[in-house]
């Protein structure tokens, strides 16, 4: 395949699926800068191997898998800031948009504070809706480890903001 043609196709893919992949990257990191780094590195790897990836039939799935794998390799490498327990502002009354936004920001910060593997488990179990077995298979670990990571992650989110998850109103468009 001609190199220019190769990158033209990749460019089209990246532009079309960029927003969806960006959402995945943010859910895996909880942080805009980290999400950008994670996604960019995954896309570079994809671009380098574009012919082979494309022949696999699902480049988007490939990029998502690379991002999850990258999280695994970050396991020992990152330091994590603790989230102040007072980060969740007291409700001043009502369920206005500003309050909901503040809660989401706090939830994102709490998510970013989790170790990468816990974020990966949350993503696969509760965003991708994979079973524990499928999650374990993707992460190359045991089902028990998946359970432990999910438990620890949710416990951390609860510590960061008691009732944080429950206090957010479900979106009206959520099925």
């Amino acid at each position: 395949m001609h190199r220019r043609h190769q990158y033209d196709e990749f460019r089209g893919f990246a532009a079309a699926r960029g927003p969806a992949l960006s959402r995945v990257a943010f859910m895996l990191t909880g942080d805009h800068q980290a999400a950008e780094d994670l996604l960019q590195e995954a896309l570079v790897k994809t671009a380098v191997r574009w012919h082979r990836v494309q022949s696999g039939g699902d480049p988007e799935a490939y990029v998502r898998k690379v991002m999850v794998n990258q999280l695994r390799s970050w396991l020992r490498r990152r330091r994590y800031a603790e989230i102040p327990l007072d980060a969740v502002a007291d409700r001043q009354g009502g369920t206005d948009v500003a309050h909901q936004t503040a809660l989401r920001v706090t939830l994102a910060r709490a998510l970013a504070s989790l170790p990468p593997r816990q974020r990966a488990v949350l993503f696969l179990r509760y965003y991708e809706d994979l079973t524990e077995s499928a999650t374990a298979e993707q992460l190359g670990c045991s089902v028990g480890t998946v359970k432990r990571h999910a438990h620890d992650a949710l416990a951390t989110l609860r510590r960061a903001g008691p009732g944080l998850l429950e206090s957010l109103k479900p979106s009206e468009v959520w099925p």
């Binding site: 990749f10 460019r11 960029g18 990257a25 939830l107």
Partner: peptide
């Protein structure tokens, strides 16, 4: 559900030219 809806906070991080 609030966790899932966090994806609405994401921006578009893709810069195809930089990646290429």
């Amino acid at each position: 559900i609030p966790y899932r809806e966090l994806d609405a906070e994401a921006r578009n991080y893709v810069d195809p030219e930089r990646v290429i």
